[in-house]
Design a protein around this nucleic acid. Structure first.
Lengths: 128, 128
DNA sequence: TCTTGACCTTCCAGTTACAGGAAGGTTCAT
DNA sequence: ATGAACCTTCCTGTAACTGGAAGGTCAAGA
């Protein structure tokens, strides 16, 4: 199938699929007209990539996961390690964002938000 | 003062300070030797930028905040609006990350993480 | 047969917010 | 005088794409 249909079936934009080819994540066949030709296994990989990316794995981590996925002799522990470390990262991000949220909420509540120029938000930003 | 001291006092790397000048956020004087020369008001701005950035505002939002900060006739409502919309963004991000966390945690717990090749994480990634 | 529109191709530039490094000038202390 | 510690500009690279230009291909309709 052409890239358009592969895009439909995988949920990834055609641009992204070409990019993934550029960086060596997939290697579709080419037809006589130069068009890329995707098989159902390619679409499978693309969906795998789509899902992994949306779960917060970096492209490089996706590359590792894909390699493990294709390695029939892999140990599940290898996969679990990647996923666990990603989980830690996500926890860290959530914690940071929550702190940031608190500070910002405090500022927003302190600001009366009217036509007058005095603003606690700017005051705190300039002192902090 | 030179950029090194401005860096110390503001907490921003010299590289970043030069970058902020490139994109028009600050305009320090220049000494006869070509060195940048920062005053205490510049350092003040730099600290403002540092703090705003670390609160999750984009450089462009910082530009707006800085303009408001320097506009003595601003309405605090303008500032509050920016901060409030940023708060909404942060909430969205936290929600997304939390969902992602749940999914990933589910996967990690389902995986026994041993030497055998069968791995629920990869299975779900390839189906999802 | 011609044409029109929807595909597809490659390549180049832009995005965000800097960081790293090269090549070279300045200042200061010894 | 010389060496370290500054400073300068300029170029490149990062992550993960997205947008657009210029042009080739294909299928359907007039």
């Amino acid at each position: 199938m052409n890239i358009g249909e592969a895009s439909c079936r995988s949920g990834l934009p055609a641009k992204t699929i070409r990019y993934y080819e550029d960086i060596g994540l997939i290697q579709p066949d080419r037809g006589g007209n130069g068009y890329r030709d995707y098989g159902s296994d390619d679409v499978h990989k693309l969906r795998f990539l789509h899902r992994s990316r949306s779960l917060g794995f970096s492209v490089d981590e996706c590359r590792q996961l894909l390699a493990l996925y294709e390695d029939k002799s892999r140990a599940s522990a290898d996969v679990k390690e990647i996923a666990t470390s990603k989980l830690g990262e996500i926890d860290r991000k959530i914690r940071e964002l929550s702190e940031l949220r608190l500070t910002l909420e405090h500022l927003v509540h302190a600001c009366h938000g009217n036509e007058r120029p005095d603003c606690p938000i700017l005051e705190e930003l300039s002192e902090g």
